[in-house]
């Protein structure tokens, strides 16, 4: 049975998480804007075929819906998702000189957020014994694929963050 989620999570943790999500959303939007302005790659819907061929994985948050929130599962999925996006963004490295700093900031902020989640899981005794290991990442074999991959990863990430934000806000307000 799901724990009473709100009570076991410190308010400062939740407020920090909300702040970190907003920061990452801002970083992600900056990446999307630059990809659009520089390469006219503005709409992930135009890259569906490419997405299938690249096999970009999704990060589920199925344990997080507010009606039946399973705290351990939700935090674990949140961390795994962040860990996945760290890997995907790493795979995009060398995307282009103009986007390098924006990508670095995004990676640093995601890594920070993942650490915040992981350490809270440890504090609550929920953390698995071992840190997750990165699975196979898509191979972006051309500059275009890295840029298009950037558009796809950024849009996935924004959706993932939107979900995470709703969950965290729900927890912070309950």
């Amino acid at each position: 049975t799901p724990l009473d989620p709100a009570s076991s999570l410190p308010q400062s943790f939740l407020l920090k998480c909300l702040e970190q999500v907003r920061k990452i959303q801002g970083d992600g939007a900056a990446l999307q804007e630059k990809l659009c302005a520089t390469y006219k790659l503005c709409h992930p819907e135009e890259l569906v075929l490419l997405r299938h061929s690249l096999g970009i994985p999704w990060a589920p948050l199925s344990s997080c819906p507010s009606q039946a929130l399973q705290l351990t599962g939700c935090l674990s999925q949140l961390h795994s998702g962040l860990f996945l996006y760290q890997g995907l963004l790493q795979a995009l490295e060398g995307i282009s000189p103009e986007l390098g700093p924006t990508l670095d900031t995004l990676q640093l902020d995601i890594a920070d957020f993942a650490t915040t989640i992981w350490q809270q899981m440890e504090d609550l005794g929920m953390a698995p014994a071992l840190q997750p290991t990165q699975g196979a990442m898509p191979a972006f074999t051309s500059a275009f694929q890295r840029r298009a991959g950037g558009v796809l990863v950024a849009s996935h990430l924004q959706r993932f963050l939107e979900l995470a934000y709703r969950v965290l806000r729900h927890l912070a307000q309950s």
Partner: peptide, 9 residues
């Protein structure tokens, strides 16, 4: 610099 920091730890 930022890359040496964990902002929330």
């Amino acid at each position: 610099p930022r890359r040496h920091l964990l902002l929330y730890q």
